[in-house]
């Protein structure tokens, strides 16, 4: 056994270094977990084929006032913005619970915000990959080019990313409080929000009883704005403003819930579930 001299003593490092460490940790997992590539490559492709073909079928029946395929394809592309940002953050956290790694992190200088930042940063890379796959598939298979909607889509994508992250904060809070049984809500809440947001249809098509719920969802306004842009209309600033207003309420509420559940997690000693 050697007594090789370690490197110089430290002062805990910087937040940037710790965030980088979390990005690295998740990059290793992504590299070695085949199922993680399903989320990034396979599901986006499958969704594109399903919804693109439905849209094309509607077109072929000649019953639609507008062409269905572009609506469906832009819907699936934008749905994947919410999906990827949500699933990347939620499953990133769940990876720590599955490998009982939470305690390992909790006894390092890593702060909760730094952890979230690291997983979100890595999630952005996954999002870029997922959207690239959907975009290329839609272009190659259905000759649909989403960039025709123009730069106006950028704020729409931003709103949808924030919605995805906010849902994740809520889900992580639920997992901290209720344990692994709450993991299913990662997908459950996401699909409820997507259904109520009218990713593939206007929210007027929803049952009347659900329409008031959809009106408070920022994602519903974002999808509506995207459809307007696809129709060649100018940026619907009213929809965008309503989406931002919704976010201003939705994101702090989800964050507050997460922080509250983190306190409960520490107070009730739930870390022992994962150690």
């Amino acid at each position: 056994m050697s007594t090789a001299a370690p490197t110089a003593p430290l002062q805990g490092g910087s937040p940037a270094l710790r965030i980088r460490a979390i990005v690295r940790r998740h990059a290793y997992v992504q590299k070695r977990a085949p199922q993680r590539w399903f989320d990034v490559m396979v599901w986006p492709m499958v969704d594109t084929v399903i919804w693109g073909s439905i849209g094309k079928f509607v077109d072929q029946q000649g019953g639609a006032v507008r062409s269905g395929a572009p609506y469906m394809l832009s819907g699936i592309l934008l749905m994947h913005v919410v999906y990827q940002s949500n699933v990347s953050l939620s499953t990133g956290f769940m990876e720590e619970t599955w490998s009982r790694n939470l305690l390992n992190f909790m006894v390092t200088p890593l702060r909760e915000a730094e952890y979230l930042a690291g997983v979100i940063l890595f999630g952005l890379a996954r999002l870029a990959m997922g959207l690239t796959f959907v975009g290329i598939a839609a272009w190659l298979l259905y000759a649909f080019n989403v960039t025709h909607a123009g730069w106006g889509l950028v704020p729409v994508v931003g709103v949808l990313m924030l919605v995805g992250w906010a849902i994740s904060l809520l889900v992580i809070g639920l997992i901290l409080r209720y344990g692994s049984g709450a993991e299913i809500l990662t997908w459950g809440i996401l699909f409820i929000v997507i259904a109520l947001s009218g990713a593939f249809y206007t929210t007027k098509a929803l049952p009347a009883v659900l329409q008031p719920v959809s009106r408070v969802l920022p994602s519903a306004h974002a999808f509506a704005a995207a459809r307007a842009l696809l129709d060649g209309r100018p940026m619907p600033w009213g929809q965008l403003g309503a989406a931002l207003l919704g976010l201003a309420v939705f994101v702090p509420l989800c964050l507050a819930y997460l922080l509250r559940m983190l306190r409960v997690f520490r107070t009730r000693g739930y870390i022992t579930r994962y150690s």
Binding site: G12, G13, S275
Partner: peptide, 30 residues
Amino acid sequence: ADVGFAAGYLPLPERLRVGELLGVFGQLYG
């Protein structure tokens, strides 16, 4: 930053090689 913790019952993160996971924790410690 001044503390190290290990427990006999605590597993190591999955899907990382030993050198990789030690590298990640090294960066977490600065």
